[in-house]
Design a binder for these strands. Structure first.
Length: 166
DNA sequence: CCCTGATTCGC
DNA sequence: GCGAATCAGG
């Protein structure tokens, strides 16, 4: 399908009305949203009414600011009790697991000081899309506190999942 | 995973 | 000029 006068006309109109590229593509037919966007750009009418863009930040080399914000919160009594009933955690040679080398199926429980050289992750098998291995999942996802202390509950006992590098 | 626009580049 | 592929982001 070619961009005839009429079609370009309608494109301009719809775009000006604020329809998205995909909406325009669907309405006009014969073109994909990519085609629409491409045309919009070539017509020089990109950027609609005052979205107030921050400034050309598009497509810049992205610095991975994925600084591990993990904290090795000291284990609290409640956690310790859980710990007691769990099988010992076999120590993998995990000192090399860094935020960038850890796999999606590896436990991301932080070990050590994030600011330290030897900071690493547990690294044991983490299944079901969980960020932690079975062992650490039990620490991370503490059962709901008994309705008794409901009121004073808060502070999720431990480290929040490290955001996997997507 | 759904969507958005932006950019690149072979055609 | 065109638009699919790809990217970056919401």
């Amino acid at each position: 399908m070619a961009w005839t006068e009429e079609r370009v006309e309608e494109l301009k109109k719809l775009w000006a009305e604020g329809h998205s590229a995909s909406q325009i593509a669907a309405r006009m037919g014969g073109v994909t949203r990519n085609a629409v966007i491409g045309k919009v750009h070539r017509l020089g009418l990109s950027g609609r009414a005052a979205p107030a863009k921050p400034k050309a930040v598009h497509h810049e080399p992205r610095v991975s600011a994925a600084v591990a914000t993990a904290s090795e919160a000291p284990e609290r009594p409640a956690v310790r009790s859980v710990l007691r009933d769990l099988p010992p955690l076999t120590d993998l040679g995990s000192s090399r697991l860094t935020v960038s080398s850890i796999g999606t199926d590896q436990c991301k429980w932080p070990i050590g000081d994030p600011a330290s050289e030897d900071f690493h992750f547990c690294g044991q098998g983490a299944t079901g899309g969980k960020p932690y291995c079975a062992y650490h999942s039990q620490l991370a996802f503490q059962p709901s506190t008994s309705r008794k202390e409901r009121k004073s509950r808060e502070a999720p006992a431990l480290p929040r999942p490290i955001r996997a590098v997507s």
